[in-house]
Amino acid sequence: MINFDYVRATSAADAVSRIAAFPGAKFIAGGTNLVDLMKEDVERPPRLIDISRLPLNRVEDIQGGGLRIGALIANADLAGAPPVAQRYPLLGDALRAGASGQLRNMASVGGNLMQRTRCCYFYDLATPCNKRRPGDGCSARDGLNRAHAILGASVACVATHPSDMCVALAALDAIVHVRGPTEGRALALTDFHRLPGDTPDRDTNLEPDELITAVELPPKGFAEHYSYLKIRDRLSYAFALVSVAAALDLDGDRIREARIALGGVAHKPWRDARVEDAMRGEPANAATFGAAAQALLRDARALAHNAFKIDLAARTVVRALTQAARGTPQSQTDKRIG
């Protein structure tokens, strides 16, 4: 870890002006990703701007429905907040599926959005990695890539985004509010993270001098028919091989609206509007779910060690949709898949 200096922001405006004034500086919130990467020397910010005490930690109802979530609320608190439990249980479940009790007490919503890939080469400075330093090459492409992307990858980078929370947010059509030195703007969550393309060093469309202030959820929470199903190599405290956030709006047994987001398969939470549109008006049954899963993964490409993920993702989609349709979401404590 390099020698850095530390300042504490007094307000959102202060945070933004401080970061604009010091290129290379970074915000720190919960610290659970940044401190980890600083210890590995993957991140070497000469200055940290502590935003953890900014009063951006409220969960507020928005007029006309919807919810505004402060960027600094801890993942655990968000999961337990009554409006989330009652109206957006998919989000609560995704949060509970991630990390550990301790980490969820620390991790912030903004930090979770910004967390970087767990690609093992990205973490190991002795191996080339385009995400760490563009042009060096991607070690994972021909290396150990069991955990890597099957969708949307590029020649330059085959990493995945590791978040659980973001998968649920993607399914819920969340909007990310950010504030720059001169103005604020809002990005759809599905546009927030990028595909790697030939700039894998950029994970998101956030500018370096922008602060995430809030995440907004539209009114529709799919609280009756949803499931977050995470498949991993051990039963807790592990990142997803594949995860699925499924949400259905049903009219009897017909689908009025379907949302499917996949985690662990791409550089961003994966959604495909065409697939969801095609499900409209269809019966909520195995045939529809199977067809949707196939369509979602039609363009999937395997690397040497991750071919299993394609089939696994398809099956997980079907299962999560089935759970959602039945109204029996996956429990995040009983590890049996319902």
Partner: peptide, 12 residues
Amino acid sequence: NIADYHVPVNAD
């Protein structure tokens, strides 16, 4: 590291 080298956790 012991995030990627999995050993059983309590839930297992």
